[in-house]
Design a protein around this nucleic acid. Structure first.
Lengths: 192, 192
DNA sequence: TAAATCGGAATGAACGTTCATTCTGATACT
DNA sequence: AGTATCAGAATGAACGTTCATTCCGATTTA
């Protein structure tokens, strides 16, 4: 019980520092200081720095999945459910830029290899893939593989937010929920 | 003149190594070996490693802009011109994964700060922004800021390719040009 | 030959990791 | 209860490695 506290303290400290300074600019010594412990202590909980980073990534993806799937009503229409997921994604990354930055940093880290990335995305995919399948059955989604459509929309939203973060002085355009959904659905919706 | 040869040799070597091994895994000594010169020589051409990285980034963005704007016919319709740009983008990143990987690495590098990023994208923006403006005048593009639409589509395409690169064992789905354009236009096209 | 250029060993700083030691608080003994 | 003993958690100085950068003797150029 007490021990888990310290473990999580280290993970939280690492999240904060990587989001703020970047991965290669957060030495273990800095994590130790932020977590109020000695450098050696970190190695009681994590075999190597790489293992720590992996744990940080999985923790992040857990939060991320929770946020995206919040309030998704399994009984609602495909359209409503996807709307919820996309708006969740958009608002989460906008309101918790720390996690969005962290994700950017970790997604090019050598420690995060293919298999781990799969594991991180699994929960999200398991929920969303069936939604696309249903949408296709109902004839409201383009005849293009789900992965292509889903990844395209995810990439669009996350890149939009990243660009906004990088240019804080640019037009502070308010992207409304309606605008966002119009773009997302336009991309995947089948039209006759 | 001769010096430029060596300078470019160093930049090319850096491109290759970063694309292959990642930024923090390519020490100057390795660049020197790849470029067949001593470590000291690199410092005759670049003040610091950071300056070298900046040059690599600008060189990359030049190639990238060239590729995207190739064969864009100023007299063609907005639709045709955007089609050309998007397909250029897609095919370039697919056929030259080295540059796509490099862009991923550099876009989170601390050396690539906001202003430099602006500079890298400038040429592309100067060509594409007027296209969107014309499209809006013609009433074929959504009433949503150009930046939002443009960045969304760019993000979608590049994320699609990145995902494909990361999971080489996944479905080797052939995304046809028609599919891609259907998605891109769906995202930005105004419908009545 | 004089000047410019080059190469790669040398340098020093920074980093991940280790380990001998200290601290803590629970248990056993008197 | 008070003291002694102990296990394992925590510590941070020290170590070896890696890296960017410098320096100087060798080499090319003019």
């Amino acid at each position: 019980m007490k021990k888990m506290d310290k473990r999580e303290l280290i993970i939280t400290a690492t999240c904060d520092l990587i989001a703020e300074n970047g991965l290669q600019a957060t030495p273990i010594s800095m994590v130790a200081k932020e977590a109020c412990c000695g450098a050696g202590t970190i190695y009681r909980y994590f075999e190597t720095k790489e293992a720590l980073i992996e744990d940080v990534y999985l923790t992040l993806m857990e939060r991320f999945s929770d946020a995206c799937l919040k309030d998704v009503d399994e009984n609602a229409s495909v359209r409503e459910q996807l709307n919820t997921v996309w708006l969740n994604l958009y608002h989460y990354m906008r309101e918790v830029p720390r996690d969005a930055l962290l994700l950017d940093q970790l997604s090019v880290a050598p420690a995060i290899r293919g298999e781990l990335q799969e594991q991180g995305k699994r929960r999200l995919k398991e929920k969303i893939d069936p939604l696309f399948a249903r949408g296709r059955e109902e004839g409201i989604i383009k005849d293009i593989p789900d992965d292509v459509l889903g990844v395209f929309v995810y990439g669009g939203i996350s890149t939009l937010l990243r660009t906004d973060r990088n240019a804080p002085c640019a037009v502070p355009t308010e992207v409304t929920d309606d605008m966002l959904l119009s773009i997302c659905w336009g991309a995947i919706e089948k039209r006759d």
